[in-house]
Amino acid sequence: MDHKLYIQDVTLRDGMHAIRHQYTKEQVQEITLALDKAKVDAIEISHGDGLKGGSFNYGFGAHTDWEWLEGIAEKLTHAKLTTLLLPGIATIEDLQRARDLGVESVRIATHCTEADISQQHIEAAKKMGMDVGGFLMMAHMNEPKKLAEQAKLMEDYGADCVYITDSAGALLMDGVIERVKAYRDVLKPETEVGIHCHHNLSLGVANTVVAMQHGANRLDASLAGMGAGAGNAPLEVLIAVIKKMGKEPNCDLYQLMDIADDMIRPLQSRPVRVDRETLSLGYAGVYSSFLLHSERAAEKYGLDTRSILVELGNRNMVGGQEDMIIDVALDMLEKKEK
């Protein structure tokens, strides 16, 4: 079955990580309307760690998710309003609240081996009449066949699409292709496949493109790469590449370039780029959202960020375990003082 290309922007969700979840309501409003005008298919808005992510552990946002989301849906002319939910952080009640604010589509995210904790949320979202994506994070930590088994569970619960979510930006192109193929082998033809990349090894666009070539049709990207770690596949670059490949995405390339450079880059207080720290995330296979938290811990305890990140990788920490950054830092401090 040939699915239509579907571009989802994550500037206002994954991009939250890059600025410690501090977008103002006005910025969210302005960026959303610009993205809608440039005709992306879907716009995801929430705290970087999904609905109700605001916390000591993940960072408190400048606003609640409800404040960011309200008043947006009614202004959109083309794009779907979407959000993210991590079971264990937010609940079905929170999802209902987002639904009431006009959110039409949601991604339910779990670690790549824990799909079964998403059943109640996926089923509830379908009951609310939403489009639902299953979002299997840290996809590099599970081999293709087993990852596809997890995707199948999400499909069974009712997901319309299942994603390969390379949260650590650690997958190489072959790894992406194997996973897309494994998904297509087991999923029903009508179930869509999605790809969400991080640019830590500079493969954000390349990985997205090979995923598309092998059957993924829902592609995630963000303006100027605005996202955790070295960011996501930069939206304007991805659209340029896809157009050069002869595909016809809905989006307006020049408008996207302008929003990226004029509206987003000035917000990036810590540059979103491949550098020593973000490259280490991809190289060591570490959850990209750990970046700023590790930089803060390194500063507070007088340690090296890269060493903290590598140690988090050695300890097999998964998305959501930001508290273990302090733990690792204190262990390293103790060792250093001895």
Binding site: S55, N57, G88, I89, H111, T113, E114, I117, R315, N316, M317, V318, G319, G320, Q321
Partner: peptide, 9 residues
């Protein structure tokens, strides 16, 4: 506020 994380290591 409560958060739970499952780790398969």
């Amino acid at each position: 506020k409560a958060i739970i994380v499952l780790n398969p290591a």
